[in-house]
């Protein structure tokens, strides 16, 4: 049986998704400030790692990694509303890439599984 990551198209699909997803979050006034960075390449690389994880691809992130990576953003006010907005942009990105609703649901479920770690709870 193929994994969700393989069904979605593997690494090339992640690369395509990063370009679309990053444009969406930068244009989304609710969350753009968390993604505005002088080093956009480094920011994009982090998003690639994030999208690889939620696509069910190879990753070794632990809950502790997620907490540490977002701790600074939590002190800047990162909350459930922002998390929801990211998931919403993620869904819109996948729809644009022709991913079906069942698969989008699976991706959203993986994202949901790290919500408490990302928000430092």
């Amino acid at each position: 049986m193929t994994t969700l990551y393989e069904q979605l198209g593997g690494e090339p699909a992640v690369d395509a998704a990063v370009d679309i997803f990053y444009r969406k979050v930068l244009a989304d006034g609710r969350i753009s400030r968390f993604f505005d960075a002088v080093d956009m390449q480094a920011q994009a690389a982090k998003q690639k790692a994030f999208l690889t994880m939620v696509f069910g691809g190879p990753n070794r992130y632990t809950g502790r990694d997620m907490r540490m990576a977002h701790a600074r953003l939590v002190t800047q006010g990162l909350d459930d509303g922002h998390f929801d907005a990211v998931v919403e942009n993620l869904g819109a990105t996948l729809r644009e890439l022709g991913v079906n609703d069942a698969q989008i649901g699976q991706v959203a479920a993986i994202a949901e599984s790290v919500r408490n770690d990302v928000l430092g709870r």
Binding site: A42, A45, K46, K48, A49, T52, N59, R60, D65, A69
Partner: peptide, 10 residues
Amino acid sequence: SSCRVGACQS
């Protein structure tokens, strides 16, 4: 290091 799968380039 961070992602350890070649994505984050840390």
